[in-house]
Amino acid sequence: MICKNKAAGWLLFYLQSSRSLLEYKNHLEACYCISGKGQVLEENGAVHEIEVGTVYVLDKSDKHVLINASEEDFVLVSVFNPLLKGTEVHSLDGSVSSAY
C-alpha cells in the first residue's frame, strides 16, 4: 500500500471480499474493477452493476454495500483522497460500516 508517509500524493489500495459495508467519512474514494462482477448498493436502495473495467466514484463519503455478484473473485483497486495514513483497518464483520 502506498500511504501518506510515502509522499506520493495518492494512495493505491486493494481489498478482496464477498460483501462489505463500507463508509469513508474522511476520504473520497474511486474504485476500478480488475476482476469479477459485483454491485454497489447505496443507502437509498440504488444498485450499480460493476464489472471488469468499471470505475465508480463515491463523492460524498457515502455509506454503501459492496457485493460480489459472481463465483470468481471480485477485486477492486481503490484510490483515496486525502491519503490514508496506513494504520486504518477494515472491519468487515457486517455489524458496522468499515469507516476511515
Rank of each mutant, 00 (worst) to 15 (best):
M1G: 13
M1C: 12
I2H: 04
C3A: 12
C3S: 11
C3G: 09
K4A: 04
N5Q: 10
N5Y: 06
N5G: 05
N5F: 02
N5T: 08
K6T: 05
A7P: 07
A8M: 05
G9F: 07
W10P: 01
W10Q: 01
L11P: 11
L11W: 07
L12Y: 08
F13E: 10
F13K: 10
S17D: 00
R19W: 09
R19T: 08
L21R: 00
E23W: 04
E23T: 00
E23H: 06
Y24D: 01
Y24P: 00
K25M: 00
K25Y: 06
K25I: 08
H27Q: 02
L28P: 01
E29F: 02
E29G: 04
E29L: 06
Y32N: 12
Y32E: 13
I34H: 09
I34L: 03
S35H: 14
S35R: 15
G36E: 11
G38T: 02
G38L: 02
G38N: 01
Q39I: 00
Q39S: 09
Q39T: 05
Q39M: 05
V40M: 09
V40S: 07
V40P: 04
E43C: 01
N44W: 11
N44G: 09
G45A: 11
A46V: 13
V47L: 01
H48W: 04
H48T: 04
E49Y: 05
E49H: 00
E49F: 02
I50W: 01
E51Y: 07
E51S: 12
E51I: 06
V52R: 14
G53V: 10
G53W: 02
V57H: 15
L58Q: 02
D59C: 15
K60C: 13
S61L: 06
S61F: 08
D62R: 10
K63E: 06
K63L: 14
K63A: 13
H64F: 01
H64C: 07
H64N: 09
V65F: 02
V65H: 00
V65S: 02
L66T: 07
I67L: 13
I67S: 08
N68F: 07
A69G: 07
S70P: 03
S70K: 04
S70R: 03
E72G: 14
E72C: 08
D73I: 15
D73G: 15
F74N: 08
F74I: 13
V77A: 09
S78I: 11
S78Q: 14
V79M: 14
F80I: 01
N81A: 11
L83R: 11
K85M: 04
K85Q: 06
T87L: 10
T87C: 09
T87S: 10
E88H: 04
E88S: 04
V89F: 13
S91E: 09
S91V: 08
S91M: 06
S91F: 03
L92Q: 13
G94M: 01
V96M: 12
S98R: 01
S98T: 05
S98I: 03
A99F: 09
Y100D: 15
